[in-house]
Amino acid sequence: MTNPPHGFICKDVVENIMDYIDKELDLETLSELEKHTGMCPECRAFVDTYNRMLDLAGKLKEKKFVTPEIRNRLRILLQSKVKPS
């Protein structure tokens, strides 16, 4: 995302977090980022909660919405609108 000069500050961690998670940082930026988070508990908490949020959001994929009733209403509608094959 950005290519900050040597000496990372918290803002640089925030602005590079997406590429960090996606493993798309160049080696120099990665090293600077990890050096900073190693020394900054605030940024470590940021990275940990960011990862946790992604973990929780990913679990929403398992959520089911379509009940047998919804499916049945679709079936009735399809039968009324589409010629049977």
Binding site: D12, E42, A45, F46, T49, N51
Partner: peptide, 18 residues
């Protein structure tokens, strides 16, 4: 989440729920 100096201002760690 950071201020104009680019700092996280100590509030992230206080609310660390990870």
């Amino acid at each position: 989440p950071y201020d104009e100096k680019g700092s996280l201002m100590g509030r992230i760690r206080n609310k660390d729920w990870s």
